[in-house]
Nucleic acid binder design. Structure first.
Length: 855
RNA sequence: GCGGGUGUGGCGGAAUUGGUAGACGCGCCGGAUUCAAAAUCCGGUUCUGGUGACAGAGUGUCGGUUCGAGUCCGACCACCCGCACCA
């Protein structure tokens, strides 16, 4: 019997679809649209398994929705700016653009092999001039609306390479290339005013009903709206009227305050640092700590005393020592706090280290004031105020209000809402990004580029063999006249964060060639995105920035109001993980470079193929280029075809869960296709059945159709596939002559189509050849609708439990009454035996579920 | 450190959301076919005891609620993701 030949059939069907323009999306106001989008890839060089899983999911949705009659937009592009291209330029001397476009060419071919129903006419890369030109226009529009501004902020600085380092490039406080200790530097940078929309971004989370709860929760926590008090401490030992402004979310604990602390970047810290070498040394130490919140919060709590005291606002005789502390964030609140050790863990750690008093001021409910003691753990729960003068006896909430009222009355502070969310710094001191359209003039300051001067193109003639940003050295490019006064001026040499590129690409896909950022009719028809699919690792930043951008683009007239929330539904797929390999010299090795074996004692051993040296096997983590634990899908496609790869990747693991990559199991998918193919060859011979004489396999097919449809709608692809396996088993077990067996095979193929499109088309063309009417191509066929008559059952099997333990089962008519079911259950041999003549205490009949006899 | 998640056979996982734990796939074991192999087909496969019908245990750990808990509640353990200049 001949086998299904994927190698021959797959390219043939791709050509047929292409010629028929099946994947082309055209605006048509008379048709219902459906916009499905997977997060676009960074062109790192090769497609990896994580990508293919993502795009296979999107393609199932796209093909299914098309069959359901929707006008589907399913585009693809490239998130093409970023550091790896510059690293390649430094390491290999290639231009970042050439490297990127070469990668795109390779990856496009790889993606096309998967048979994704993508409208490739809409493809673009964010490094295309036609894209970033529009991004520059958006930047200027946002500047006009005061959504963009400039201020100082801190970066990691590598003093040897003379470059800013990303947090991931800082390893143990040193630069990843130079190994030199990292310093902090203040640079004036451009910011998007995302905090101006913090309230809206937070409140609108409630409307995102088709987003996963966990993502909504993470976004809420990230925005972190908190209500508290901002107020001034009078200072003792400082200049006459100098005060220290602090922010607290726990004004109730003010009587428990033991100290005040300012961030190492606080102006006051700097001023005292300049005068005192001990303080200065501590500030230097803090500067080496890195800028990530994780590094700051994980570091041992430390501080240095400043030569001033803060005066307690309610007890002027009390003086609180003021420290510079490494755990106070300059970016949050005012960069200064008061510490209440009894009720905040960080403050407690700090107080224990410097022997500061720990006074509890909140007694947990049920505890007397005398009974409250603080050990190693701060008391953070609710309770009643103690040791707190006029607050004693109040609840925490009452005390907060009382303190705020007093401070406001005294005029030394105000109730204040704060956000954990910070404004979005977008300046990057790198070449391979979208140039910021600003010109710096000595007399006019920073001046927006004129609209008719856009795009500001990246200069081609640059070198990467010297430290620093090549744009700084591009004198010809940099020198331009000031747009306002005409005097010699300089271009801004910072480029934009690549997150900006990915914050509006979904809108650009609606009209990728428009001369403006968007085209009103197109975005009005296609947006919002109906289904967005991507990695859960983007749950916060990318999705929040996109939500901000959609609003900013609505405010600047580029998007309709209804697209202020850009993604109606979100699905976050799990990551594809693989164990990691690291040589003794700390080089990461890819799975291909490693020979992995299992010893007799069960221990895994890996050696580097090239050298034979033993390498360390690390934990299985998200596949990433930096750890090189990436597996290429080409081999599987080459050997078994795209359909096998797609089927396998969507079977087994639930889509939202991480999957540990393994090669076993691919053969199972391949076997399944061949098995179905044999059924197809048999079905070519069989006659069609009617509803009346349909056998069990056709009934099973209709039931499977109902279940698979539901599973696809709910993103349960693994379950849909399990159902299709069951249907295949049912058909294979049916006699060849069973009426409707051939029709059942037809249903199976159509249900498989979103997963295995080439295979299903090929199989369908065999079966459909004997049919006279209807579309011949599944790509243009409607979805299979099961007949209700096939879905009903007249009997039902119920498990019977005795005291919650299963003892047997009964089969009853679906119309049977509870009494009949009870009688049938009590008549069961096993039940009779266990009851041993005694009457049951109780019999619980749960309709259509279970019977439980309580003895 | 903070925020979010996950935990079920040898493995990936299923379980209509409080109602038959282990669907489906992988792997493994046995058999058929074959000169042999590949491919295919049939049967078995949570663990323990028993030839067997069957009995007992069992969803990371400990405790609780319930006629009934993988599912709900409390305390813990392990692993994974994010933490703002990786994309």
């Amino acid at each position: 019997m001949s086998r299904y030949n994927a190698r021959e059939a797959e390219p043939r069907w791709r050509k047929i679809w292409d010629d028929a323009k099946c994947d082309r999306a055209t605006r048509d106001e008379d048709r219902r649209k459906y916009y499905v989008l997977e997060m676009f890839p960074y062109p790192s060089g090769r497609i990896h398994i994580g990508h293919t899983r993502n795009y296979a999911m999107g393609d199932v949705v796209a093909r299914y929705k098309r069959a359901r009659g929707f006008n589907v937009l399913h585009p693809m592009g490239w998130d093409a700016f970023g550091m790896p291209a510059e690293n390649a330029a430094m390491e290999r001397g290639v231009h970042p653009g050439a490297w990127t476009y070469d990668n795109i060419a390779v990856m496009r071919d790889q993606l096309k092999l998967m048979g994704l129903s993508i409208d490739w006419e809409r493809e673009f890369a964010t490094c295309d001039e036609s894209y970033y030109a529009q991004q520059q226009a958006l930047f200027l529009d946002m500047l006009d609306r005061d959504l963009v501004y400039r201020r100082e902020s801190t970066v990691n600085w590598d003093p040897v390479d003379q470059t800013v380092l990303a947090n991931e490039q800082v390893i143990d406080g040193c630069g990843w290339r130079s190994g030199a200790p990292v310093e902090k530097r203040r640079l004036t940078q451009w910011f998007f005013r995302i905090t101006a929309m913090a309230d809206e971004l937070l409140d609108a989370i409630d409307t995102l009903e088709s987003w996963p709860d966990k993502v909504r929760l993470m976004q809420s926590n990230w925005i972190g709206r908190s209500s508290g008090l901002e107020f001034d401490f009078a200072l003792h030992g400082a200049a006459d009227d100098e005060t220290l402004r602090v922010y607290t979310t726990r004004p109730d604990t003010l009587f428990g305050a033991a100290f005040c602390a300012v961030s190492a970047e606080h102006p006051m810290a700097k001023r005292f640092g300049a005068a005192d070498p001990t303080i200065d040394a501590f500030l230097t130490e803090c500067a080496a700590m890195g800028t990530s919140e994780e590094a700051i919060e994980r570091a041992e709590k430390k501080g240095v005393r400043l030569p001033i005291d803060a005066v307690h606002p309610f007890e002027p005789s009390r003086r609180l020592p003021v420290y510079v502390a490494n755990f106070v964030l300059m970016e949050y609140g005012t960069g200064a706090i008061f510490g209440c050790p009894a009720h905040d863990q960080r403050d407690l750690d700090f107080a224990r280290k410097y022997q500061l008093p720990v006074t509890p001021v909140v007694a947990p409910d049920g505890l007397d004031a005398d009974a409250v003691t603080v050990g190693d753990e701060a008391i953070t729960g609710a309770g009643r105020m103690i040791n707190s003068s006029f607050l004693d006896g109040m609840t925490v909430e009452e005390a907060k209000d009382a303190v705020i009222a007093r401070i406001e009355q005294a005029g030394s502070g105000d109730r204040k809402v704060n956000y954990r969310l910070r404004d979005w710094g977008v300046s990057r001191q790198r070449y391979w990004g979208c140039p910021i359209p600003i010109i710096h003039c000595d007399s006019c300051g920073p001046v927006p580029a004129r609209r008719d001067s856009l795009p500001i193109r990246l200069p081609e003639d640059v070198r990467f063999d010297q430290p620093g940003n090549p744009l700084d050295r591009a004198e010809d490019w940099k020198s331009v006249p000031c747009p306002l006064c005409g005097a010699p001026a300089r271009r801004e040499t910072d480029t934009m964060d690549t997150f900006v590129d990915s914050s509006w690409y979904f809108a650009r896909f609606c009209s990728p060639k428009a001369e403006t950022p968007t085209n009103a009719k197109d975005v009005d028809y296609w947006l919002p995105v109906d289904q967005y699919i991507g990695g859960v690792e983007h749950a916060i930043l990318h999705l929040l920035y996109s939500r901000f951008f959609a609003r900013a683009m609505n405010d600047t007239g580029h998007l309709p109001e209804k697209a202020r929330e850009p993604f109606r539904a979100l699905f976050t797929q799990g990551m594809v993980c693989h164990e990691t390999y690291q040589a003794a010299d700390k080089r990461w090795l890819s799975p291909e470079e490693v020979e992995r074996t299992t010893q007799a004692n069960g221990a895994a051993v890996a050696v580097e193929r090239a050298t034979g040296d033993v390498v360390a096997i690390g934990p299985s983590v998200k596949m990433s280029k930096s750890k090189k634990n990436v597996v290429a899908p080409e081999d599987i496609i080459e050997q078994f075809g795209a359909d096998t790869a797609r089927w396998f990747m969507l079977s087994d693991s639930p889509p939202e869960r991480d999957v540990e990559w393994s090669t076993s199991g691919v053969e199972g998918a391949w076997r399944h296709l061949q098995r179905v193919w044999r059924l197809v060859l048999q079905a070519e011979e069989s006659a069609a059945a009617s509803v009346e004489d349909a056998g069990p396999s056709l009934k099973a097919a209709h039931r499977a159709a109902a279940a698979v449809t539901e599973d696809i709608e709910a993103f349960r692809f693994n379950r849909a596939i399990a159902r299709l396996y069951e249907l295949t088993n049912a058909i294979a077990a049916a006699p060849l002559a069973e009426p409707g067996r051939g029709d059942a095979v037809g249903v199976l193929i159509r249900l498989m189509y979103p997963f295995t499109p080439h295979f299903s088309e090929e199989a369908w063309s065999r079966i459909a050849g004997r049919r006279s009417s209807g579309p011949q191509m599944l790509a243009e066929s409607p979805w299979f609708e099961p007949k209700a008559a096939f879905l009903v059952d007249d009997t039902l099997t119920l498990p019977v439990q005795l005291n919650g333990k299963k003892r047997g089962e009964i089969t009853v008519s679906t119309a049977a009454s509870d009494d009949e079911i009870r009688a049938a259950a009590l008549a069961l041999d096993s039940v009779v035996k266990q009851l041993d003549g005694a009457a049951p205490k109780k019999v619980i009949v749960v309709p259509k579920r279970i019977v439980n006899v309580v003895a």
